[in-house]
Nucleic acid binder design. Sequence first.
DNA 1: ATGAAAGCGCTAACAT
DNA 2: ATGTTAGCGCTTTCAT
Lengths: 326, 326
Amino acid sequence: MATLKDVAVLAGVSVKTVSNVVNGYGFVKPENRRRVEDALSATGYRPNIGARNLRRGRTGFIALVVPELSIPYFGELAGGIIAAAAEHDWNVLIEQTQGDRDRERETIAALGPHMVDGAIISPQAVETADVALPRVPAVLLGEHPLALPLDHVGIDNVTAAHTATRHLIDAGRRRIAVIGQHPTRGTAVQRLAGYRQALREAGLPEIVAPALRYHHHDGAEAMAALLAEGDPPDAVFCFNDMLAFGAIRAAVDHGLSVPHDIAVVGFDNTEHSAYSVPALTTIAPDKAALAKAAVDLVRRRAGGDTDLPPQHVQIPFVLEVRESTR
Amino acid sequence: MATLKDVAVLAGVSVKTVSNVVNGYGFVKPENRRRVEDALSATGYRPNIGARNLRRGRTGFIALVVPELSIPYFGELAGGIIAAAAEHDWNVLIEQTQGDRDRERETIAALGPHMVDGAIISPQAVETADVALPRVPAVLLGEHPLALPLDHVGIDNVTAAHTATRHLIDAGRRRIAVIGQHPTRGTAVQRLAGYRQALREAGLPEIVAPALRYHHHDGAEAMAALLAEGDPPDAVFCFNDMLAFGAIRAAVDHGLSVPHDIAVVGFDNTEHSAYSVPALTTIAPDKAALAKAAVDLVRRRAGGDTDLPPQHVQIPFVLEVRESTR
DNA sequence: ATGAAAGCGCTAACAT
DNA sequence: ATGTTAGCGCTTTCAT
């Protein structure tokens, strides 16, 4: 690989001049510019980004900490963040934690300024006691129990859950269960609150099924448990789409028809939800806006805007009404 | 951030000694080792990976070139590759091409030794004429029309497609369509060949529906077109799971029951296929093995093993038989 | 076993 | 407008 120096020698100028041309700095005598450009293409020069960043004291990377990319929601999220970061010449380093508390803690603790310029973290299991303030600017995604003065991007989970539950009430459902209750998971706590509020307003009973993880399997299990009881629900609001798909699966296995016997609402609007059978009614956050807001915030912090108080950006959502509640 | 030099000063030794301790090199006098270790933890030293790699002439990164992470198959793949790479202290840089020919070409052309030590590429649309040999060790994933002397990891697509089709024949289906035919996409060409071979052996007619892209939408469209014809198929083999989900959707919309009226087989065994309604019969490649093989190959090449002839690693697969064909 | 010093490729003061 | 040079943090000869 040709270096800046090689190009300089070939062009018969100093490295500074080459650097100036490469970076578009200042003025370069047309004659020299031409010679440099010739040398540049003759050598096929590509700047060594690592060396540049070492010198500049930045890394050009941001970390994205998520449970796993194989979960469609996080795949979609990561895709959006990579695209948004690329617009600012940033690369994204993805760290998978499996939603495991220890791995989340270690991963966040390992985030350092010589590895990344900032981080976007989607915490699942860590609690405040676990983590110190990361040593790089960080923005937190979704609700979480971390009492850390960090920027945050998310949707209004209480309202979203209220909207979903209200939708089921308006559809005439009276025994509305929820799947996904979890003691510490921030989104779960908020969504449960929204659900409760809507039921209270309507004077309907709460039916709460917990889930430790949010995979298909957990949804199916929770639904099976609900149906095994004496007085089964006629609707269920699941805290993510995978729980919902699992719940639908279990309902069907139980001989029920969705939505006739039991209506189902999900959360996330993953791509699949529009094509499942039945198509899934779900809360649809504006994921592109979320990715953009998160990247913009780290950019701002990494740019040195450090005494701005912690920001809380709320991303809009809509309820996508589909077959599973019609 | 503390540097090696800071630690050296604090410990009262030279940077060399600290470096030796940090990297576990050679012998260090116990007394010195203790002092260095104390200084290390007192300063909370973390090596600057960028500087290390600059010096070592490596980057510590491999690129993963995929269409988009929001496609579940690629999300799962990326997750596996990141995990496999992490075992060797490698970070993965993900480049999304949207399966676009120009972007694939540019991305591959931009792959340079100062950015990444190697690359894993899942080509969708590029053709041989488009791309020169990447300047870093690269392994290609899946079938592709690139006549480049590069390592390759994939499954036996012809046999897999034959297996899928044969399964439908054995189930008594007689009008078996295929969705996903594409003139240049390597996997499509091979899967079509396997399908044709199986039909030929059974003396059954070919019903071939093309698809430009492989999303739900394309599967639904293709299925709708097949059903609009006079003599609809009683089974369809789709070249990936998303096409299959789209096809099922369209069949249901058309008032058909899967598998009673029409059986459906997919390809990839994405996580969702086990929970869809009906659960999808699909070709299940061993994705973990695929990720591991790909990472091992780049590692070997990046390690300097350059005169080994291009390797072709075949990953095992099985047919997961589920409700959509029962 | 450890220290001194060069240099990876680049940028940015500083000088001219 | 362009050249010279120090130095980002690290590893690695070369000495000792």
